[in-house]
Structures are given as structure tokens and as C-alpha cells.
Simulated assay, not measured.
Amino acid sequence: MSCWDTVADYALRSVGIGARLLPKEDFTLCQQFTLIGSGMIWNIYFGLLALISGFFFATALAVGKSSANKWLRKPAEWFIFIFRGSPLFIQFFFAYFLFLSLKQVLPIFAPFTAAWLGALVVLFFNTAAYTGEIFYGALLSIPKGDIEAADAYGMTGWNRFRRVTFPTMLRLAWPAYTNEAIFLFHATTLVYFSGFPAWRQKGDALYYASYFADKTFNPFIPYPILAGYFIALTLVVVSIFGMVNARLNRHLPKEARRKIRFRPNIIR
């Protein structure tokens, strides 16, 4: 079998398209690159959807935490504290068994026991909590002069938030938010090791890398391939977020613009 045949058979296997059975022997480098790359589809799916949906919830959490109304402030504070204070792996573990228990009572929760939805919910809550704290810090850092200027122009409520508060918060928070986005994509590798089953062996990139490492007894080929894919994905994320950062700071002198720096977290 040529490498092109391997790509045709396994490039979309992680989403159920292509050969049903995994290779059992004579593992080639092309097979490993193709299947691990196929698994990256799920990592991008989890990371992208959690990032987009979590962004809006995080904004609401940040506004709630900075509110003077305790009925808005306290739930936001506790939500952020719980999801930032507990390990992501444990959140996956408890969420899976919670959804499994709810499924016995209400069949409507059956889709949540699958990784494509249940794990996505956990990642959504987790990144919303971390991003909410980043946005909250940015809200506190908004110069008072900006708010006073908005008041002088007669801006209040939603109009002031939309035209002054939110853009300034986003500009201040964006470098830190970029690191959160990068780590979120890295955290997606925990999904299939946290209780959520890989249905018909349709797993993510780490699932396939582990498969080859177990079968060949040589982890020094599949895991570096996996690392290479994530490095490439990180470069894409940094590039896209860098362009957004330049757009947010386009009104500032070039030397005054905050640059994005990648600061990896040691543990989540």
C-alpha cells in the first residue's frame, strides 16, 4: 500500500470516514502521520467550539464578578473559583459520571455521555472560568479616564460598555487570552483519557499516538509526531491572535503596542 492509499484510507478515519479497522502490523511512518493527523480533527473541534462559546460566557462572568449586585457577583465568583480550583482531568471524570447518572433518569442526557458533547461542555465551562478571570482583571485595569470621558459624552449602560468598556477590556486582556487559547487546545488531549469513551476507535490525536506507542513499543516516533502537530497548531493560533491583537491596538504607536508572548502553564 502506497502512502497516498494510506492517506485516502485513514485521513478522515477519526470522524468515521474511510477504513474501519486500524492497522495491526508493519506500521509505517505514513500511517502514523496520517492517523495522528486525523485525530487532530477532534482536538481542533473541541478547542475551537469551546473557545468561541466560552468567550461569550467568560465576558458575562467577568461583568458579573465586577458587579456591585451580590446576586450577580457571588455566582460568578464561585463558578470561576470552582473551575479554576479543580484539575481539568477531575472535571472530566465527574462530568462523565454525572451525565451517566442523569442518563438513567432522563434519556435526553444520553448524548452528553459521548465525548463530542459531554467533554465539550466541560471544556466550555473550564475555559470560560479561566477567561472570565482574565477579563475581570482587564476590567479592573481600565483607566478611569476612559470611563470619565465616556460619561462626559453622555454614554451610559450598554452604549458605554459596547463602545468603551468592552473594547478596552479586550485590548488589555488579549495577550493573556492568547495563552489561554493555546493551552485550551493542548488540554483537549485529556478528553479520551478521562472516562469519555472513544466510540469505534474514533479518538483524538493522542489516542492514535498511544495506540502506535503500545503496538510498536516505541514511543519515540508517534509522540514527537503528535508534538509536531501541536506546535504547528500553536503557530496558527499565535498568528491569528497576533493579527487580532494588531487590529485591537491599531490606534496606538507601534512601540506602545503590547506584544503577545507565549507563557505555557505547567499544570491546569
Rank of each mutant, 00 (worst) to 15 (best):
G54Y: 02
I108V: 15
A119S: 13
P111L: 05
A19M: 09
A128M: 06
A213E: 11
R162W: 09
Q32A: 13
A138S: 05
L170D: 01
T188D: 04
L184T: 11
G16I: 12
L12Q: 05
F217C: 01
M243K: 15
R200Q: 13
Q31R: 00
F81K: 13
L252E: 14
R268D: 15
A114Y: 12
G39W: 04
S194G: 08
F46Q: 04
V244Q: 00
F89T: 09
E180L: 03
K65A: 12
F212C: 06
Q32F: 02
V105S: 13
F99E: 10
G203T: 02
P222E: 11
F212N: 10
W71D: 02
N43F: 07
A187Q: 11
G37A: 08
I240H: 03
F92G: 01
T189A: 13
A246M: 10
F217I: 03
L35N: 01
S101W: 09
F183V: 03
L51V: 14
P111Y: 00
A19Q: 13
S66Y: 09
R257Y: 11
V164Y: 01
I221C: 08
E148P: 00
Y96K: 08
F55W: 11
F217Q: 06
F212R: 05
L61H: 03
N43K: 08
V121Y: 07
F135N: 07
G228M: 03
K259T: 00
F89K: 06
A173N: 06
L49M: 11
G18P: 00
D204Q: 01
I221L: 15
